[in-house]
Amino acid sequence: MSDLLLNLALILVKLGLIFAVILSMAAYLVLAERKILGRMQLRHGPNRLGPFGLIQPVADVIKLITKEDFVPDQSDKWLFLFAPGLTALTALLSFVVVPFSPPLAIFGRELPMVVCDLNIGLLYFLGISSLGVYGVVIGGWASNSKYSLLGAIRSLGQLLSYELSMGLALIPVVLTAKSFSLTDIVMSQADWPNLVRHPLAFLIFLVSIAAESKRTPFDMPEAENEIVGGFHTEYSGMRFGLFFVGEYINLVILGSMLTVLFLGGWHGPLLPPIVWFSLKVLFVAFCFIWARGTMPRLRYDQLMHLGWKVLIPLALLNLLVTAAVLLALKG
């Protein structure tokens, strides 16, 4: 009984810690993005509040909270109010299965450094991340505005075209690790990160999560200059903020997934595991921001073309070759 309580308490503590870290990371990613984009465009970015603008996220939150929470007259009210929460929530939920450090031994107990080490962690992640699109679709539908609806439709189409290749790109990883548990997958990369073993799967997964994160070059659902912000056109105040934070939490999550699945998770020389993990996640996040500062937006049909005609056949081929090689090595 006391064991159960202790476990529960530990899970709660870990949840609280992760919640705090992820949220502050998301807030500072916004700042980092604005600064890095600014520097890439030969501007300074926000630098007025505090040294180097470090208090800017606080000011942003105050601004968002004090703004009017506007609900359009013709909208589907309850769905409209509920959708932003769904986006942020699903984004947060994915982090439950991400292992960020090897299990610690404290007081003679093995303490896994992951909120919940599911044996089907990978499937859980895939499921939750496809749930995330519901927030966008419901928000776009409930706003009852043509721009929002277009954004919602685009994000659905986008989901369909990249989810398949994303799942297919992950199977080789599972094949080598012989497990769906993310901890086992990281353990299997002790000597070689999967990036070296499955470079093609890495590339396909990279493109897929770029599409999943709904960021440039795949930001068709928002596309400010074509459909005025897409699914969040009608949102204001903290509800818009939730969509926004959800996007950045998603960035952290996808960065951690890429780290766990392909970059070797916490493995690395010299530095402690947790530092390696954070460094890798931050590097991935930087690459996403970098891509946003560099790439133009794809056209809608170009994404479809890329997803269905290039990524999926490539992923299938990759899967076939990997499976054959693994079979030959075993036999």
Binding site: I36, G38, R39, M40, Q41, L42, R43, H44
Partner: peptide, 8 residues
């Protein structure tokens, strides 16, 4: 550009 001095 990231390492160029901003024009602002």
């Amino acid at each position: 550009y990231l390492f160029t001095k901003p024009a602002t």
